[in-house]
Design a protein around this nucleic acid. Sequence first.
DNA 1: CCTTCCGGGGAAAACGTTTGCCTGCTCTCG
DNA 2: CGAGAGCAGGCAAACGTTTTCCCCGGAAGG
Lengths: 336, 336
Amino acid sequence: MSSLTEVAREAGVAVSTASRVLSGSEHPISERTRARVLAAAERLHYSPSALARAMVTSHSRLIGVLVSDIDNPYFSVIARGVDDVATKAGYVTMLSNVDRRTTTEINRLQAMRDYRAAGVVFAGSGYVDDPQHGALADAVRRAREQGVRAVTLADRDLGCPSLTVDNRAVAQDITGHLIARGHRRVVFIEGPTGMTVSRHRREGFLTAMRAAGLETNAACHPGGFDYDAGHAAALRLLARRPLPDAVLAANDEVAVGALRALRQAGLDVPRDISVAGMDDLRIAEFTGLTTVSLPLYEMGSLAARHIIDATADTATNTVLSHRIAARDTVARKQGC
Amino acid sequence: MSSLTEVAREAGVAVSTASRVLSGSEHPISERTRARVLAAAERLHYSPSALARAMVTSHSRLIGVLVSDIDNPYFSVIARGVDDVATKAGYVTMLSNVDRRTTTEINRLQAMRDYRAAGVVFAGSGYVDDPQHGALADAVRRAREQGVRAVTLADRDLGCPSLTVDNRAVAQDITGHLIARGHRRVVFIEGPTGMTVSRHRREGFLTAMRAAGLETNAACHPGGFDYDAGHAAALRLLARRPLPDAVLAANDEVAVGALRALRQAGLDVPRDISVAGMDDLRIAEFTGLTTVSLPLYEMGSLAARHIIDATADTATNTVLSHRIAARDTVARKQGC
DNA sequence: CCTTCCGGGGAAAACGTTTGCCTGCTCTCG
DNA sequence: CGAGAGCAGGCAAACGTTTTCCCCGGAAGG
């Protein structure tokens, strides 16, 4: 691996001169010298050590993204958004799975700090009454003081800018969609207890139900965020009399699980019962699921852009808009 | 961010001494000094600069993974496998999407080299008659000479160890499964032309068909690797008379697309027609798709382990085993 | 008593950049 | 013709580690 020193020697100039032409400095350089350096670099297959550069400038062109699980399509599309703008800007993406553990999150943040990451994107949700939340917020504060830019993509106060979706409104809107289509006995399969996003979606659901004057006593049903949770919950729902009109799931994967359980039980969706989800992952498109489309890719790409462009870091909290993706799993009942 | 120098000053020792206790060197250090340094590091929240360390040792604890698209579950599970062992070993994962472009791959490899990555995992397939293949192989060779370890997870000769699945056998086995269950008019929806994996799966399919003495004249159908390709192909297949017995898709996503098209057209799968895929992604589980299970997570984790453990780098080509995941989309025809 | 050896610790080089400061040199203008 | 301006380029410090070489003191052995 050839170094700047070798390029300089090959070109017959000082290291500083070589550096200036190769790193595009302001410092004026004659065309002749510039050409010589460029030629030498070419001959030697020179590629600057990002490490050394980061050492002296004290920040790398590394951008970190902390996800719960990259194998969850919700996060993989965010990661894709981050990486696309990162790559385009000459950065490299660092990825870490934190499995919803705040301590791991602190840990990985530190690992990325050790590489002098330009910034870190926190893609995962927060937790209610999280005993580690303070420690994480402290770690983020220290990282920011050191120049690491941070962005959170969920409703959680990390003392850094956020780029979120209003999950209460998301749930409220899709519930309203169901109600507007004549559904009255709507039940909600909740997300994992303890996650902020679950709580917000639940609140949005309840708000919409109450606004329509609907019964909410047995409307919320424990669930989770995965297929099995949706499947199991739907099975339990099947025992209810009267049967619900519609099932709203905390996310698409749960909705698909419920959808399958319902259909396996011989029900016709959406004739007998409607099903809706939230997130609009590709699986929703595949299954024709009515859901709420979230700008996940944009969240990732905007977060990366924020970090790279180093736009004013005033803790601005941006809320992105969502929209309902009406497909085939929600019926329009007579009279609507 | 406190440096080793500050820790040393705080502890009243030389930098070298501090380094030795903090980096666990062989050099003997008295218990008293060791304790003092440890205490000072603690007080100052010291965390070593991975950059500086990498500079002097000339290799970082960064491990790169090159995928076609992280938002494709095939790759996200591989990435998850890599990251799990990387994290456990104190490494950080770098991720890049290359969108099936070899030039991008070369590019990103270089970017990772610039950070002195310990190794790079090539997760994507190769291409037949790829004009850039030579350039990539050269880049890999140079990287390896410099100490960057490389592993490929697909049938492609990069001059580095490989960890693959036998895609010919994969297709052959699932085709055999179909045939053994009484299917005679099996059609194969091919993957993207030009990808090695497509070609291998096609060959495996044809081998199995011929071995059973079955007609292969119109057995292969152009497709792709995504849902829409499967959907469109199935629609075209519907026009054939007689209708095929079974559809084998080049991967699960295509199979799901076909499945949906077939069912939308009023066919009963598997009664009227069977469908099978390959890869066994979660979507296959969700939809009850019969497919071939591939050790993707293991491929990722083993690749990472290979890089980290620096086990003998003799270009060993390991072939991992697959198994058929029989579910609900393949019928057993009478007499079988 | 003199050598040898070893445990414990320090000084300094090295990794490959960037950048502030300095030095010539060539113009230009008065 | 002299002086200031500005262009080109070099020197060296600095970033934060690891590691090699060295030194010192004391214990062990002859």
